[in-house]
Structure formats: C-alpha cells, structure tokens
C-alpha cells in the first residue's frame, strides 16, 4: 500500500529525514514513535505531500509521489489525515465539516453526504453533536469529529499525527477507543503516538525514529521486550515510566 525507499527531506539546509525506508501493507497498522524533533511528523506529512521530499522514492497504492505526480489530489482522496491540533473548520458546523469533502471533492449529493456524515458521527459516538460548532465541543469530541471528517472521504489509508497529545488526560481514551475500533475494520493506519498501551493493542509494526532516521522496525512484542538498539531502550524506559 505504501512503499518508502531511501527518503530524504530538507528544511532549507536542515536535514529532517535521511534515508528512510518503510513499507506498509494493506490493512497493516504501523505505530511510529521517537523523541521530539526526530522527524515523525515530517515523514507522515510526506506521504500526502504536505511536505515535499528531496530524495528517494515514495509510492502510495502504486502511484509514485513526487514532482511529476500529475494529480496529487487523487492520491490525497485515498489518504485521511488527523492532526494533533484537530484543525476543524471553526466557521462550519460539525455536519458541514463532515460533508464539505464528499460534496466538494467527491462530487456527492448533499443528501448522500449528510447520510454518510451521520453514519460516521455514529461511528465516533457523537451523533447528537451534528449541528454544533467545533468550539462548542470538548477536545476529545473535536478530535473524534476530525477522525469522522477524514473517514467521510472513505480513504484507504489513515494517518494520525499525535492525535491525543493536545488532549486532557481524561479525554485521551475516548479518542483511542475510536481508533482501536477503526483498526478492527481493517483500515491501513499509520499513527505517530506515544500511547504505548494503544500501540501494544493494535500495532502490527513498531517504528522508532531518531534524528531523521528509522533506528528500529519490529513487531510489537519484540519491540517492547527486546529492543535491539540502546537508544530505543532508553526511549521506551522514559515513555513507559508514566
């Protein structure tokens, strides 16, 4: 589904990614972790080309992403993205946040889009909030709306960039629960998160990054019980302390 080969990425002179390779099968769940500034966000943002890589190759569903990609929009339609800061459209109601993509991009009728929106609001357990504005919801609710907004495009892949980091502790689980349920539907998911409980539960593959490189890739048991690199071990000790 996603094939990354020797990816490099620069912000001006600063190298944010170097020689990153990773492949993700359809239906696979990958959890990426690593210290702050290690390039986790940059990596997943390259996948839907919010950042442009400068070397290496990147394929999504068989299409190479790069300068030559004729229609990046066709690729983006198949990739949902959930941000740390939700990024809901504050001037639109929850329902409009959900229907705007299908109506504008997928050219769906308003009625069908609304039916679909309500279906996914149900899926994230807030069917009753459809007519409110984002600012009237709690953080956890907002993030679930953001997940539903992505799902309304019925993508093949979902990217999550620290979806619970901006939330109060008591709201983290309601979002993680939705993500676990989503995982069980067979969605291909790449999650940047430090929620190791969640990672243990759903991950097929763990990825540890540091200073723009992938240091370790392993199945969860191996990753948590016998990490090969010392840096990964130190990182896990720190995260698991809490």
């Amino acid at each position: 589904m996603i094939e990354i080969r020797g990816l490099g990425m620069y912000f001006g002179k600063f190298q944010a990614l170097s020689n990153v390779s990773l492949s993700v099968e359809a239906g696979e769940k990958v959890v990426i972790c690593g210290p702050s500034g290690s390039g986790k966000s940059t990596l997943i943002r390259c996948i839907n080309r919010l950042e442009e890589h400068s070397s290496g190759q990147l394929f999504v569903d068989g299409v190479e992403i790069g300068e030559e990609t004729r229609n990046i929009r066709n690729v983006r339609m198949e990739i949902g993205m959930v941000f740390q800061q939700f990024n809901l459209f504050p001037h639109l109601t929850v329902l409009d946040n959900l229907t705007v993509g299908p109506v504008r991009v997928r050219k769906m009728s308003r009625r069908d889009a609304e039916r679909r929106a309500r279906k996914y609001l149900q899926r994230v357990h807030i069917p009753e909030q459809a007519d409110k504005y984002p600012s009237q919801l709690s953080g956890g609710q907002q993030q679930r709306v953001a997940i539903a907004r992505s799902l309304c495009m019925e993508p093949k892949i979902m990217l999550f960039d620290e979806p619970t980091s901006a939330l109060d502790p008591e709201m983290i689980n309601e979002v993680l629960d939705v993500m676990v349920e989503l995982a069980s539907t067979g969605m291909t998911m790449i999650c940047v998160t430090h929620e190791m409980g969640f990672a243990r539960k759903v991950a097929d593959k763990m990825v540890f990054m540091e200073e723009g490189e992938i240091i370790e890739t392993a199945p969860p048991e191996e990753f948590f019980n016998h990490p090969r690199s010392k840096r990964c071990q130190m990182f896990l000790d720190k995260v698991l302390e809490h």
């Binding site: 929009r73 983006r76 993205m81 990024n87 459209f89 993509g101 504008r104 991009v105």
Partner: peptide, 13 residues
C-alpha cells in the same frame, strides 16, 4: 496553516 493543510488533506482544489 493547519486550516489550509486540513483542506489540502481532504484533497480540496
């Protein structure tokens, strides 16, 4: 910037 990125990741023109 996040608003525009959200729009772009929904594949908006």
């Amino acid at each position: 910037k996040g608003q525009r990125e959200a729009a772009q990741s929904l594949a908006m023109r």
